[in-house]
Nucleic acid binder design. Structure first.
Lengths: 89, 89
DNA sequence: ATTCATTATAGCATACGTGCTATAATTTAA
DNA sequence: TTAAATTATAGCACGTATGCTATAATGAAT
């Protein structure tokens, strides 16, 4: 055991889902002819945040995704229109 | 794009979307015969977190929703199967 | 009313999501 | 190539999502 802190928190970071979500957002944004800056400005999000989401650097909150969906004028479910692999049991 | 207008820091908390998401999760969880504790245990989330989501106390991250979807064995898009009102422009 | 199960609330510590400002890297246009 | 547009990265401050532990409220069962 390492010295110092012991209880390291297991972080919730679903790489598969975040990767697929990022692809969806990029896809829809591109299809609408929006730049990251367009999306950021119209949604009220920061440009850095949009970039971080699309490059899978963070695990955004659902309200952030709601803002993106509203701005891109798609259903939220459209941004989650992919399948996750089954969890291990 | 448009510049010169500073983005005001606004709390990101989409009450409408979070309320509908909470309803969906409760609905699906109930239909599967899961208690909050079942869902928490199997997903690896804390019971308090599940309760906070269902009572709309927090704005969860998407990875948290991915865990719930996997545990309830539904598509993520099923948990977002609702419409948001159009954004004001 | 009394148990039992389930759901909701509360306080704390800590990791991290987010906005902001800058800068770098990459892509596109000329 | 050069310049411009677009995307990506980085560090900081602040608020919050999350786990944990515990307790309280609610509901169901008759």
């Amino acid at each position: 055991m390492k010295k110092g802190k012991v209880n390291k928190r297991v972080l919730i970071y679903d790489e598969e889902g975040l990767t697929k979500l990022a692809s969806k957002i990029k896809e829809v944004r591109g299809n609408k002819g929006y730049t990251q800056e367009d999306l950021a400005y119209e949604s009220g999000l920061s440009l850095s945040q949009v970039a971080r989401i699309e490059t899978i650097k963070i695990n955004p909150t659902v309200s952030t995704i709601f803002k993106i969906a509203r701005t891109l004028d798609v259903q939220v479910s459209d941004l989650f229109d992919f399948k996750l692999s089954k969890k291990a049991k």
